[in-house]
């Protein structure tokens, strides 16, 4: 194809998206669109399955039977969401195994929040409330993103995720209304998870490299800073309601803007964690690699068995 022809196709393509038409797997798409989508969808899928680990820590130690089954179901949902997203990504011509390979070698990223440790039961509450809260803000607009398989996966994810944040907030509320010791657990968890949750919504707009293009392709509907503001504005009253204090001395309601003003985010910390120097980067990645490597003989066995069965069927037919 000549450059002019490609240019022409790209223009038509952009017009389709502007008209809110969906792009489906076999449609022509610019190479950059394909690559950007592989990157974002796989990053999202990786985040789901790495995200199972910090919470998975507490399944065996959950404090009540009710909490145990809820947490187990939640972490299982995350496996499901990872699976939906890997499947969506595979429609772009890359296999799940290749995507795992990228994760395991450190080539692909996942949400850096999961590199923080879960130290107490209250962290499970904080993750559900704050991390899932921030994730939902990010994800809801993706239900109408331009790439059909991604949008469909996100609709399923958002539908299932609605119980996750409630589960987390309910844990926090119970702790905040509990004994002084429990309240302390809750406050301590909020202190540790608040700032990483704000960072989770991505670097400031000035630093963000992908925003403009992503807006055009409807991979993004709002900028990182807008999303962050939305998250803060909705979360602060929820903390107030259960008597917990957001650990930001600069946090103040601004009558004029009708929004909260908030303090400086420590972006050095953010980049440190992204670059692999967070508290648990190594542990998370090696847990994933181990699961995959230790599972190899199992996957191979199933494949070998399936082939034998298939051959037997053919023999019988003859």
């Amino acid at each position: 194809m000549s450059e002019k022809e490609i240019k022409n196709l790209e223009e038509l393509f952009d017009q389709r998206i502007a008209r809110d038409e969906k792009i489906e797997p076999k449609d022509w798409m610019p190479e950059k669109y394909r690559k950007t989508h592989i990157r974002q969808i796989s990053q999202h899928a990786h985040s789901e399955i790495v995200g199972m680990l910090p919470e998975g820590n507490w399944i065996s130690r959950a404090p009540s039977m009710r909490r145990k089954v809820a947490l187990l179901a939640k972490v299982q949902d995350e496996a499901g969401h990872g699976l939906y997203l890997y499947s969506a990504c595979e429609t772009l011509g890359i296999s799940r195994e290749e995507l795992y390979e990228q994760l395991h070698t450190g080539k692909a990223k996942y949400s850096s929040i999961f590199n923080y440790p879960t130290l107490t039961w209250a962290d499970i509450g904080a993750i559900g409330w704050l991390v899932d809260g921030a994730a939902i803000i990010n994800q809801v607009p993706l239900c109408s993103t331009s790439y059909g398989p991604y949008a469909r996966a996100m609709i399923r994810v958002c539908k299932e995720e609605s119980f996750h944040q409630r589960q987390g907030y309910e844990i926090m509320m119970t702790l905040a209304n509990g004994t002084p010791e429990q309240k302390e657990l809750a406050q301590d968890a909020l202190n540790r998870w608040w700032w990483p949750s704000l960072m989770m919504l991505g670097p400031t707009d000035a630093e963000s490299v992908h925003t403009e293009q992503s807006m055009k392709w409807k991979l993004k509907r709002k900028t990182n800073d807008e999303l962050r503001q939305q998250f803060i504005d909705q979360t602060v009253p929820q903390a107030d309601l259960i008597g917990l204090t957001v650990p930001d001395s600069d946090l103040k309601w601004n009558e004029e803007t009708k929004k909260y003003d908030f303090g400086e985010i420590d972006w050095d910390e953010f980049w440190q964690v992204v670059k692999g120097h967070g508290p648990c980067n190594k542990e998370r990645l090696s847990a994933r690699v181990n699961a995959w490597e230790e599972g190899e003989w199992v996957r191979d066995a199933a494949m070998a068995y399936a082939e034998k069965q298939q051959n037997n069927k053919i023999k019988k037919a003859i």
Partner: peptide, 8 residues
């Protein structure tokens, strides 16, 4: 949970 040989 989270450590199986495959997501499925």
């Amino acid at each position: 949970c989270g450590h199986g040989p495959n997501l499925e």
